[in-house]
């Protein structure tokens, strides 16, 4: 029976074909545009009562109705997109930078330093991810920026381990041996020889992790540990809406749906990059 190449790989999403392959990129692009242009396209101030009744139903004036405080839900969702992207992309970028540096040192230097770093990573990974992030937020206080830091810290050990494995694989290659035999220092070997060769798989992996980071951040916001109200935050909006599900279930469904669409689109984009990488 015919199986495509894609079938043989683990953790592969259904392969999109033709024009459908462009869809996730379009969705992500549209969401980014909406996030940047939010102040221009949002019809109302996201944190002020707009003078309409509370929990107004969908209407041309309020495409997504109003929330329990009489605020325009469409404007709030638009303004919530930016923080969601800042937190998920920022957290992964930070985790790749820090985890990548640590993993690179560990993989290239080897020896006792490697052992120490990897045991520290083991300890950090012995925490459930969400618990580690909660503790960071407790220590730093709740805010959108700290939420980004918390998610980043919970991802650092994962990238440290991945980078170390990639780096350790490169160190034994001939070109690294040659560089070291030519008398180049360890720093040169790390930065100029090993790093460029492991960067691509690392970045491809990072794209997929953005989805996980977005979900983690949304969950923390839901628990009340992200942005401070009344700032618009999609995770917290689900929480606020949950208290009103008997009257207006759409107020909790919509913000969560937006998170889900973003995560899904990012997952598909990451997968297409993975495919090109031949992973």
């Amino acid at each position: 029976m015919p199986t495509t190449r894609a079938d043989q790989h683990r953790f592969r999403l259904p392969t999109l074909t033709g024009a459908l392959r462009l869809l996730p990129w379009l969705v992500v692009g549209l969401l980014i545009f909406a996030a940047i242009a939010a102040p221009l396209i949002a019809p109302y101030d996201p944190i002020k009562n707009v003078g309409s009744p509370m929990l107004a139903p969908f209407s041309p004036g309020h495409p997504f109705g109003t929330d329990g405080f009489g605020r325009d839900q469409f404007s709030r969702i638009l303004h919530g997109l930016g923080p969601m992207m800042f937190v998920s992309v920022g957290a992964v970028a930070l985790a790749v930078a820090v985890g990548g540096a640590v993993g690179l040192i560990s993989g290239v230097m080897g020896g006792w330093l490697d052992w120490m770093i990897m045991r520290a990573v083991d300890i950090l990974m012995s925490f459930p991810l969400i618990l580690a992030a909660i503790l960071v937020l407790v220590a730093l206080g709740a805010s959108t920026f700290n939420l980004m830091l918390a998610v980043a810290i919970s991802q650092i050990p994962i990238f440290a381990r991945l980078t170390r494995a990639l780096a350790a694989g490169e160190v034994v290659r001939d070109y690294v041996m040659a560089a070291r035999a030519s008398g180049f220092g360890m720093l040169h070997v790390m930065v100029s020889e090993v790093a460029p060769n492991i960067l691509r798989p690392l970045l491809v992996q990072a794209t997929s992790v953005v989805a996980v980071a977005a979900l983690t951040a949304a969950a923390l916001s839901y628990l009340g540990m992200g942005a401070r109200p009344p700032e618009p935050d999609l995770g917290y909006m689900v929480k606020e809406g949950q208290e009103l599900i008997f009257i207006a279930p759409e107020q909790t469904i919509l913000p969560g749906l937006v998170i889900a669409i973003f995560v899904l689109a990012i997952s598909f984009c990451g997968d297409q990059l993975n495919e090109r990488e031949g992973g």
């Binding site: 979900l215 949304a218 839901y222 689900v238 909790t252 969560g256 998170i259 889900a260 995560v263 899904l264």
Partner: peptide, 8 residues
């Protein structure tokens, strides 16, 4: 299923 926020 994987992409849905659990709480939601």
């Amino acid at each position: 299923l994987f992409s849905l926020p659990w709480f939601w």
